[in-house]
């Protein structure tokens, strides 16, 4: 049986504007599969994005979609979720969008533990603006603004999210589309801030500038650095140098922000609570 992607897509908007072989398309498919599995109604979903290649994702899906400003989609999503806590809110962001210009919004949404599902398509570069380095570009990598190799240390988005207070944090590569989708399903169902760090290929910018210009070659290069959590737990810290851990990195229960606010409303109206 073929999967009914077309039920969720704005089919008239195809073909996608992303470069052939771009990881963004894999993420799009994974999101749709997760939503289908969860049985969410299209009317009940808001998908919000910032600016960048990743920011174009909402344009293709038949939900309530909002393409905002660079780095700030989480702030818009917070407003939506605050007034409609009964609805599902998904944010699709890039590594620059989420952790450079939007870093402040990112950590504070995690701290609040508001039920927003944040997918960071982490290609370790600024795709849309011509391949400048981002907060997740590894040391030594060539980009248009690091012509002699990057000297800026990188963020680990997963660790950042955990430290800031997100209650569901996962990481997967675009090489593992189905596993990514399963992880999204679990993360979307989780009541609280979900952050999924999707390690993705930008062969056009990152690849071309580092002799990895072919999408398959670059995806393989990235996948070779992935260490599943179970395996990583048995490894010594030094052995993980230059690699990254995949899987559900963190999952805990803590009161969700709009649930907490609902308590205040009940209290203020004098129903229940003290």
């Amino acid at each position: 049986m073929t999967f009914p992607y077309e039920d969720y897509l704005r089919n008239e908007k195809l073909p996608l504007l992303w470069c052939p072989g771009c990881g963004d398309g894999i993420v799009l498919k994974a999101i749709i599969r997760a939503i289908h599995k969860l049985g969410w109604k299209k009317d009940d979903i808001a998908m919000v994005s910032g600016i960048g290649c990743s920011g174009r994702t909402p344009g293709y899906v038949d939900f309530n979609t909002l393409h905002t400003t660079h780095g700030r989609p989480v702030s818009f999503a917070t407003g939506i979720k605050m007034v409609r806590p009964d609805k599902h809110v998904i944010v699709v962001s890039g590594d620059g969008d989420a952790t450079a210009i939007g870093g402040n919004h990112f950590i504070h949404a995690c701290r609040r533990n508001i039920d927003i599902n944040l997918i960071v398509i982490n290609n370790s570069i600024y795709g849309m603006t011509g391949g400048q380095f981002s907060p997740t570009t590894p040391i030594g990598i060539n980009t248009s603004t690091t012509p002699m190799g990057n000297i800026d240390p990188a963020f680990d988005i997963g660790q950042l999210a955990i430290a800031a207070g997100a209650t569901f944090v996962g990481r997967q590569t675009v090489a593992k589309g189905l596993m990514l989708s399963k992880m999204m399903e679990e993360g979307f169902a989780h009541n609280g801030m979900t952050v999924i760090d999707v390690i993705a290929n930008c062969h056009t910018q990152y690849g071309r500038r580092n002799k990895l210009g072919d999408p398959i070659k670059l995806i393989k290069f990235l996948q070779d650095k992935a260490v599943p959590l179970r395996k990583a737990e048995k490894m010594k810290p030094g052995e993980l140098e230059g690699k990254f851990v995949t899987g559900v990195l963190h999952k805990v229960e803590r009161e969700e922000y709009t649930d907490a606010y609902e308590r205040l409303i009940k209290e203020a109206k004098g129903q229940g609570g003290k």
Binding site: S75, F76, T78, V83, H105
Partner: peptide, 21 residues
């Protein structure tokens, strides 16, 4: 509902999101 955001940029984003909803 009231929310104190992390800065004014976020506050403005949040009210636009809420109004759209």
């Amino acid at each position: 509902r009231f929310i104190q955001m992390e800065d004014e940029i976020a506050s403005m984003g949040a009210i636009i999101g809420a109004s759209l909803a």
